[in-house]
Design a protein around this nucleic acid. Structure first.
Length: 227
DNA sequence: AACCAGGACGTGA
DNA sequence: TCACGTCATGGT
């Protein structure tokens, strides 16, 4: 088993994942059964405009260590309030933002993160940000920075999360206790340097992890499948 | 009813 | 560096 083959197996098994979800067309409340989160499988044209781009960035912050179902509620409430907008966010009182994003958890920290990122977004207007500039912001770590670059700005940055380390280590495609940088170097070194591949890879990893890596011992059907 | 979720930061060793 | 504690809601 190698990384490209593992990627092909995931893609064959689950199909395109349509990340990053964008709610732009959605009007229903997230509590509605069958709510459309805004995944767009096999459509790699996102984001279509600055509004969608900012929503992706905000979502990357809101989903930190948080289930997407909860982050999506926060996204929706911000949109409903007309506050999914960098200009509004920097002008609004923090307690107001905190109330909108409450369901995403860590709402005090995430309020500060959103407002500081919004300020940065306004200053850099449109251009793809430098990775180190993102990392210098309070609340933007390696994964959030790479998520923003890959999904909001279509830059070829691999996103590594806890699932990626967990799964690839289990498959012995990473050394024990690999760091973020080590994992990223290995993945970028072995997979085709294409934005669509990077986007699908991370999304597929998350989907696969949700099915088979919630709790050890892990029973991964792809681990013993015939090559 | 613990445990986890599409992390990041602050602190002390 | 590294190992912990903290931040917080909602689903299982």
């Amino acid at each position: 088993m190698n990384l490209p083959l593992f990627y092909e197996q995931l893609l064959a098994r689950y199909g395109p994942q349509g990340w990053w979800p964008v709610q732009s067309a959605s009007t229903a409340d997230p509590d509605t059964p069958g709510f459309d989160y805004g995944y767009h499988p096999a459509d790699y044209t996102f984001p279509h405009n600055p509004s969608e781009r900012f929503e992706i960035c905000a979502g990357a912050i809101l989903t930190q260590n948080t289930a997407w179902s909860n982050a999506a509620r926060a996204v929706w409430q911000l949109r409903q309030a007309g506050a999914m907008d960098p200009q509004i966010l920097v002008q609004s009182p923090p307690y107001q933002i905190a109330e909108f994003i409450r369901p995403a958890g860590y709402y005090n920290q995430k309020t500060r993160k959103l407002r500081e990122f919004a300020d940065f977004f306004l200053r850099t207007a449109g251009a793809a940000p430098d990775r180190n500039d993102l990392l210098s912001l309070w609340g933007i770590g390696p994964e959030t920075a790479d998520s923003i670059l890959l999904y909001a700005f279509s830059q070829p940055e691999m996103v590594i999360d806890n699932y990626t380390i967990r799964i690839l280590t289990h498959h012995r495609l990473l050394p024990e206790k690999a760091t973020y940088g080590q994992a990223k170097a290995i993945c970028t070194g072995e997979l085709p340097r294409e934005v669509t591949v990077y986007q699908e890879f991370h999304a597929l990893i998350v989907h696969h992890a949700k099915q088979h890596y919630q709790r050890a011992p892990y029973a991964d059907p792809l681990l013993f499948s015939p090559a």
